[in-house]
């Protein structure tokens, strides 16, 4: 396959960056996330980013419209997302799968989210196959191939000293072509490196079906006990897509309506006007999160909403591991 030496990564990135915005996983101020490429940025492809690339399509805070209100008169002015094209470089299988989950949510079922759609259409995703399983990774358990994902526009393979590259879509081919034109590609027959056995493994087969009869299961009475109801798991999750709509006043007369990440772990999330909360305690919140990932989402969109990226496991303050929940569901006795 076509390949470029790892030593030439900077040149590859420079070439791609010259065509438009290029997002690369990098370490800035000790935070590993996707940043627009700059020559002085510390690109890091050693492991997956700590913060998922979902924020590129679905930013944590996004302006929807400006409003003005003078007395009884008011006006609304739409703020549309930026339509410039971009390339996402180094997206892992788990995050690629997560993007497909987000596609389901934002691009299907009646309405299209203009903000997500615009960014998504403009983006070319260059996936990167993993040759090493991270400490908290379990994508293979969720039915993914860590080495490649067919949803990507182009796929990078770890060939040892080289990265192999294959275009999968028209957009992806353009990336490959650009690199070829720049004279960076050569042919390589080296073996694709694959990760050794995952430390974290779980059998997710049939969990969605089993959970259908488990809403009232006693399992949920125990799972929440150590949860502190923070939003870490949901904010780090590449598939969590809940948002809230609120506003930010610029001054007394005008402001901006914003869409911002929200988390089912928060108290106020399900609270209705008037004070009724259908999910009043930690138990219901924890159940909602796992049920959503493992049952409701599969019911609605036909796939798990967990892609095994392991971010929630890595950062959960109390080690409430989704793999452990899946195991417990598997072992649970269900009456009837």
């Amino acid at each position: 396959m076509k390949a470029f030496p790892k030593a030439k990564l900077q040149e590859v990135l420079k070439t791609l960056a010259s065509k438009g915005t290029l997002y690369v996983p990098a370490l800035v101020d000790e935070t590993h996330r996707y940043y627009p490429y700059r020559a002085d940025i510390q690109v890091s492809l050693e492991q997956n980013s700590a913060i998922s690339p979902k924020e590129i399509f679905f930013p944590s805070t996004e302006k929807i419209y400006n409003f003005t209100a003078y007395g009884i008169d008011g006006d609304y002015e739409e703020i549309l997302p930026d339509r410039t094209a971009c390339v996402l470089f180094g997206v892992r299988s788990c995050d690629m799968q997560a993007i497909l989950c987000m596609d389901d949510v934002f691009l299907t079922r009646g309405y299209i989210d203009e903000y997500y759609a615009t960014r998504r259409e403009g983006a070319t995703i260059v996936a990167l196959g993993c040759s090493k399983a991270g400490a908290d990774c379990f994508c293979s358990s969720m039915g993914l191939n860590p080495v490649e994902h067919e949803g990507a526009d182009a796929q990078l393979y770890d060939l040892g000293d080289y990265y192999g590259i294959q275009g999968r879509t028209e957009k992806g081919e353009k990336v490959v072509e650009a690199l070829a034109v720049a004279g960076l590609l050569s042919e390589s027959s080296a073996e694709v490196l694959v990760p050794e056995e995952f430390v974290l493994q779980v059998d997710s087969e049939g969990i969605a079906e089993k959970l259908q009869a488990m809403f009232e299961h006693s399992l949920w009475d125990q799972l929440w006990r150590k949860c502190i109801n923070c939003g870490t798991c949901t904010y780090l999750c590449p598939t969590c897509h809940c948002f809230d709509i609120s506003e930010k006043k610029k001054n007394q007369h005008c402001g901006v309506k914003i869409k911002c990440w929200d988390s089912c772990m928060f108290n106020e999330y399900a609270m209705m006007a008037g004070g009724h909360n259908p999910r009043p305690s930690k138990k219901e919140k924890v159940r909602q999160r796992f049920m959503h990932k493992l049952r409701y989402f599969p019911e609605r969109y036909g796939k798990y909403q967990c892609t095994g990226c392991g971010r929630c496991i890595a950062k959960c303050p109390v080690n409430l591991e989704i793999t452990d929940v899946i195991n417990q569901v598997r072992e649970a006795k269900v009456n009837g």
């Binding site: 935070t31 502190i228 923070c230 939003g231 870490t232 904010y235 990440w261 928060f266």
Partner: peptide, 16 residues
């Protein structure tokens, strides 16, 4: 500023 830029507002610090 640099530190606060990173904050996700997950409130883990508060809840623990």
């Amino acid at each position: 500023q640099k530190q606060h830029e990173k904050c996700l507002r997950c409130y883990a610090c508060r809840n623990i």
